[in-house]
């Protein structure tokens, strides 16, 4: 069964819950190489997004994603605001007027979202950013669809690739954001943005484990 609007909302709620649970963890990661606010920022942003969604009456999945994107843009505060804002706005653009999503719809939406983040932040793979989790996740998802595996399995592989990408940021030297001020000293720490990206994609795989 394709993903319904309820399934999409369930994912977003799971994101909010997971980001709340991991608030201190993300902030600790950010304290090592940034300004120690990523966990607090993401938690605040997703709480604001959930409040907006609670009063949003629509069948259109695109509107759901755009509402989340705009809420994040105005409440997250750090670079995560424009970056995750763009991620969800782009998901929204690609799913406008859709009441359900097929595996192919998700491929197109995720691709637009990841490309949006890359265009917004101008980060390349290896710069120790969200992109290092998001890009492998997108590629793994598309490769899985090509192989013809079920939707849920493709999502699981996508999350696993995001996790590997996240871990691969540990030895990297940051090229973007506050962490880049640290230069070589940023090596040895896992990137907080790549970590939140992994958490969000893992939440998708978990929420949509029954999707086919």
């Amino acid at each position: 069964m394709p993903l319904t609007q309820e399934a999409v909302r369930a994912w977003l709620q799971r994101c909010a819950a997971v980001l709340e649970e991991n608030r201190d963890y993300l902030t600790q990661l950010d304290a090592a190489i940034g300004d120690a606010d990523h966990g607090v920022n993401m938690d605040r942003g997703f709480k604001a997004a959930m409040t907006k969604l609670a009063s949003l009456d629509t069948q259109d999945i695109g509107t759901v994603f755009k509402t989340v994107g705009m809420a994040l843009v105005s409440t997250v505060g750090g670079a995560g605001g424009p970056l995750y804002g763009t991620f969800f706005l782009q998901l929204g653009v690609k799913t406008t007027n859709k009441q359900e999503l097929t595996p192919q719809d998700w491929a197109e939406a995720l691709e637009a979202a990841v490309n949006g983040v890359i265009a917004r932040g101008q980060a390349r793979p290896g710069d120790k950013t969200m992109v290092d989790a998001l890009l492998p996740a997108l590629e793994a998802y598309k490769a899985a669809l090509q192989e013809g595996v079920p939707f849920s399995e493709a999502l699981a592989r996508s999350a696993a690739a995001a996790e590997e990408g996240m871990k691969a940021t540990i030895p990297m030297v940051a090229k973007k954001g506050r962490a880049s001020y640290l230069g070589e000293r940023s090596a040895g720490h896992q990137d907080p943005g790549a970590t939140s990206s992994y958490l969000i994609l893992r939440a998708a795989a978990e929420s949509w484990a029954g999707a086919t």
Binding site: D37, N41, R44, M70, V73, S74, T75, V76, G77, G78, G81, P82, G85
Partner: peptide
């Protein structure tokens, strides 16, 4: 600021 109290930037603002 994100708002008058919270540090950060707000594209909507």
């Amino acid at each position: 600021g994100v708002d008058d109290d919270i540090l950060g930037t707000n594209a909507e603002r």
